[in-house]
């Protein structure tokens, strides 16, 4: 059997299949990143071990985990007013800050000799989400078979997942930009500031845009009234 497969591979590897295999390999690479973050993230950015497709998969899984957590965790452990929850709004409330933070980090580090390109930063940040997904997704199920007194178990794992992911994100940025830990930390703080500035600019932009649009609409109306 496997001899045949081996032959096939050697003979005519279709481009599509190769792509798929590369994708699967980059997914599997997340395991190596989680347990060997320094090596893992270095190779992720510099040896092209990861892929944007895999990163996006993790991001989507992250959003799905968050939504599932709200909807299917036993009510003993989550305080979610289901009658008011909008799934897309919840997903967006994580996705937008995530993207803005990536953008903020890129816009700063690119000025201060960070080696990472935007795609590298995005990939590294997405790979850092893996522990969050891997721990919290099973916890949704586990929450339905444990009682309120056993909440300690649940909350500890919950915080482990968050701390693990944050630590990975830190190491990831460090390796991607080839920064020292201190420098990474300082740039993390400035990243938050940059994100706030981006949000501010976006708000200003949209309010100006809506003003401009309404200006042209009123001009059109004025003309229309005068002419008729």
């Amino acid at each position: 059997m496997s001899a045949i497969r081996l032959q096939n591979k050697e003979k005519a590897p279709s481009a599509r299949k190769e792509k798929w295999e590369r994708y699967v390999a980059s997914l599997k690479y997340a395991k190596y990143v989680c347990f060997h973050p320094f090596d893992g993230f270095w190779d992720l950015a510099h040896e092209k071990k990861g892929s944007i497709a895999a990163a996006t998969t993790f991001l989507v899984l992250f959003l799905i985990t968050h939504v599932l957590k709200l909807m299917y965790t036993n009510f003993q452990f989550v305080n979610a007013p289901l009658q008011y929850i909008n799934v897309f709004e919840q997903a967006a409330s994580l996705l937008l800050p995530f993207l803005i933070l990536c953008l903020g980090n890129w816009s700063l580090t690119t000025l201060f000799d960070g080696k990472g390109r935007f795609s590298d930063i995005y990939t590294a940040m997405c790979y850092a989400l893996v522990p969050f997904i891997v721990i919290q997704l099973p916890l949704v199920f586990v929450s339905n078979i444990i009682a309120f007194d056993e909440a300690a178990f649940y909350t500890v794992l919950m915080s482990v997942s968050v701390v693990y992911s944050l630590a990975l994100a830190f190491v990831g940025l460090m390796q991607v930009h080839d920064y020292s830990p201190g420098k990474t930390f300082i740039f993390l703080i400035f990243t938050v500031l940059a994100a706030l500035i981006i949000i501010f600019l976006m708000l200003v932009f949209f309010s100006l845009l809506s003003d401009a649009v309404s200006f042209f609409i009123s001009i059109y109306r004025e003309i229309a009234f005068r002419l008729y």
Binding site: F75, Q76, I145, A147, F148, D149, E150
Partner: peptide, 13 residues
């Protein structure tokens, strides 16, 4: 009522 639910749930489990 999480507390009481947890209690009942343990017994049921």
């Amino acid at each position: 009522d999480r507390d009481n639910y947890g209690r009942a749930f343990r017994l049921w489990r």
